Computed example of a mutant assay.
Amino acid sequence: MNTWKIREIKPEDNQQVKELIRNVLVEMGVPKVGTAYEDKALDDMTQTYEGEKMVYMVVEENSRIIGSAGIAPLTGEEEKICELQKMYFLPEARGRGIGMEMITKCLDFAKKQGFEKCYIETLPYMENARKLYHKNGFEVIEKPLGNTGHYNCTVFMIKDL
């Protein structure tokens, strides 16, 4: 039986989620500019994902947030393409099937919202993340879509829903 559960973010999760995302980015050696590290959205993820056709989920284990991910319309491509956003897991959450379950829940949500494709940006050296995306049907494309503002992310992937 799982000792963890995936649920929607609550206001009291905001600080833990912000720290989790920044800690994972630092661990991975990600630049602090041109990436999610500097996103203002991190200050209040609950409010950021309150809009239509968006959701942010967390993985909770023993009253602690160990992972998170969200779906939102891709800025500049709002109609048919969503973006899998800010998907990060602490080391203790990795290799346990949690990422696979999180992607499934996010993509199920996206389909229910009527999106036709899902887009993601990542970095070349985030190999485990890229493998997980590939296993879930994401394919690398040559150039970015939309306008995410993450100019340091250089791997672009998309999947038909």
Rank of each mutant, 00 (worst) to 15 (best):
E8K: 14
E8F: 11
E8S: 15
E8G: 12
E8Y: 09
I9Q: 08
I9W: 03
I9T: 05
I9F: 10
K10C: 12
K10F: 11
P11H: 14
P11F: 10
P11C: 12
P11E: 15
P11T: 03
P11L: 10
E12F: 12
E12C: 10
D13K: 13
N14V: 10
N14F: 07
N14Y: 09
N14C: 12
Q15A: 15
Q15M: 14
Q15I: 13
Q15C: 09
Q15E: 11
Q16L: 05
Q16V: 09
V17H: 00
V17W: 01
V17R: 03
V17I: 08
K18Y: 08
E19V: 10
E19W: 06
E19R: 14
E19T: 06
E19F: 09
E19M: 12
L20D: 02
L20T: 07
L20G: 04
L20S: 04
I21A: 04
I21V: 15
I21T: 06
I21L: 03
I21D: 01
I21Q: 06
R22V: 01
R22D: 01
R22C: 00
N23A: 15
N23V: 08
N23S: 15
V24S: 03
V24H: 02
L25P: 00
V26G: 09
V26Q: 15
E27L: 09
E27A: 13
M28G: 03
M28H: 05
M28A: 12
M28W: 11
M28L: 13
G29Q: 06
G29L: 07
G29C: 02
G29H: 01
G29D: 01
G29A: 02
V30C: 12
P31I: 05
K32S: 08
K32V: 08
K32A: 01
K32T: 10
V33Y: 07
V33N: 11
V33P: 04
V33G: 07
G34R: 02
G34L: 05
G34A: 10
T35F: 02
T35Y: 04
T35M: 08
T35I: 08
A36W: 04
A36P: 00
A36H: 00
A36T: 08
Y37V: 01
